[in-house]
Design a protein around this nucleic acid. Structure first.
Lengths: 194, 194
DNA sequence: TTTATATACGGAGGCTTGCTCCGTTTATCA
DNA sequence: TGATAAACGGAGCAAGCCTCCGTATATAAA
């Protein structure tokens, strides 16, 4: 993270460019949360007070913008995974993290949609963020299996996909509750304890 | 099903109208499967060899078309539920039906997306089809709980939502396998047997 | 068979949105 | 204080959604 984004030139990054980039990210976060990731990019540019051309220069595709917006969120999920792994016994850490995941999806309405694509990734677009989340959940799962708390007969990511599915489809508070109950069912389903 | 759609008049339904209706349904099924339910309606009309106006007369909204396309599918799901409930013990019937559900979602790529909306229904659009599927899964679940095979701590529909989520997000054969493993985990999670 | 007419057809056209291109403006550096 | 590389931003084209209405035709009556 020490590069100035343009190592090929001596010029510093212009402050207006960086400012607009941040304004766009902030605005996009709000708009995506409100209207889902299919929201109008023109609206985002307008709300951010920049031209549509500026938006497209910073983020050449819709997906590039989405990825940038949610990179921050995925990093928080990663951090939570690391912290929980240290603080709690394996299976509890896993449960707690899954609940954190559900909360993230619930709070940011539109985010669940984005996270779905992200968790999936037949496209390479979300590859880096997706890889991080995979890493997080895999670590938690590995700890729990090593401890013989659970037997895993499914890809760790598929657990997230199921949660993402419920949260995506049934948005709102009731969907969140459903997702939380689903966490218990899933954990019971893969538990070695009777 | 004995009405001629226009009981207010003596005229028969014109054969060209019915033919175009069927062509549109058939074409839409293919295009939705290929490109998801956001596919261009103009393309569907073009492929079906009719004008865009004709498409809109038969199906005033995109959702009307989607609903019509998948009504047939949901009826098959209903039929399968009824049949399985008669032929097998409760919990097996439930498992078998969930697997049928997964297969449906896997085979028709684009359908999973439509079914997601359908299974959800904050909109009334898919109300009738959604209600049928709810009915089907509820019956199977009720049988199994009455038999004390499972304890249900979650809405039956949420089971489908989880499956839909996995199938939607991870399309293709691997997604299908994942969804099938998920069925086992879910059933283990709500089973009363240790 | 011929005629009358209800009904369906289909595309032009108005509108919105996605995305590109390029002339104008401005922050940086010498 | 220029020179200039870089960013800005909106005009403009393409594509899609949906409506409207003149034209074509299947059906029913004579």
């Amino acid at each position: 993270m020490s590069d100035k984004s343009k190592p090929t030139t001596g010029r510093k990054v212009r402050v207006d460019a960086e400012r607009n980039r941040l304004r766009l990210l902030e605005t996009a976060k709000g708009v995506f949360a409100d209207k889902g990731s299919a929201a109008s990019l023109e609206e985002i540019a307008r709300d951010a007070g920049v031209g549509i051309g500026t938006l497209y220069r910073h983020f050449p595709t819709r997906d590039a913008l989405i990825e940038a917006v949610y990179r921050n969120e995925t990093e928080q999920l990663m951090a939570a995974a690391t912290r929980l792994a240290k603080e709690r016994p394996p299976v509890e850490a896993l449960r707690a993290w899954l609940l954190v995941f559900v909360d993230y999806m619930a709070i940011k309405h539109g985010m669940s949609e984005a996270l779905s694509s992200l968790v999936c990734g037949p496209s390479d677009l979300y590859a880096s963020s997706g890889a991080k989340i995979t890493e997080a959940v895999s670590m938690l799962v590995k700890n729990a299996t090593a401890n013989s708390d659970i037997r895993l007969s499914i890809e760790p990511l598929d657990l997230l996909r199921a949660l993402a599915g419920v949260a995506t489809i049934a948005a709102g508070p009731s969907g969140s509750d459903a997702a939380k109950r689903l966490v218990d069912i899933l954990l019971a389903g893969i538990s070695t304890r009777t």
